[in-house]
């Protein structure tokens, strides 16, 4: 089953390669990985989605914790998960197809980023399942390119994963 792991790390060069190396080496499969800096410019948050059993998740967490540059690790429980992914998709859209695509975009709450006589470029930020559905819906019109960010996530409620260590 899928698990969402949130990791706070030092914002150093090389941290990401250590983490991805760890996953490859120990045979953990990454479904998605997204990195971005936090409100503290010295700390980045990595959101990793892995498919594995409970025992494996525990090992993933422990192995991540062993890396010197990893500050905090937490698996977000599914029922507490707020997850979003951003996608930009460029579709082939001539005048005839344009209206239909725009209807789908409106229903799915996608934003129009660019329009040309032959293409439409749309943006959608939503849960990963909605992104999949959107792709299904627009596929018949001809997808020219897709870029996705990977899922980012926070936990619902007042619990936070934060690091306020002594510096």
């Amino acid at each position: 089953m899928k698990h969402t792991i949130s990791v706070l790390v030092e914002n150093h060069a090389g941290v990401l390669s250590r983490i991805s190396g760890l996953f490859t080496r120990r045979g953990f499969n990454i479904d998605s990985l997204a990195v971005g800096v936090t409100d503290d410019p010295d700390i980045s948050r990595i959101t990793i989605i892995v498919t594995c059993d409970e025992h494996m998740t525990e090992q993933v967490e422990k192995q991540l914790n062993k890396l010197i540059e990893v500050l905090k690790v937490k698996t977000i429980p599914d029922e507490e998960l707020i997850a979003r992914e951003l996608m930009i998709v460029k579709l082939s859209a001539d005048a005839a197809a344009r209206r239909d695509i725009l209807t789908v975009a409106e229903v799915m709450e996608a934003k129009i980023l660019d329009i040309t006589p032959t293409t439409l470029t749309l943006q959608l930020a939503d849960v990963p399942q909605q992104l999949e559905r959107f792709v299904q819906l627009v596929e018949p019109y001809g997808i020219l390119e897709i870029a996705r960010t990977g899922t980012i996530a926070l936990q619902k409620g007042s619990d936070t994963l934060s690091f306020r260590g002594k510096v």
Partner: peptide, 14 residues
């Protein structure tokens, strides 16, 4: 360089 030798170690993730 003009080295500054630290007395102690502080690694916040370790």
């Amino acid at each position: 360089i003009e080295p500054e030798f630290p007395e102690s170690v502080m690694i916040r993730g370790y």
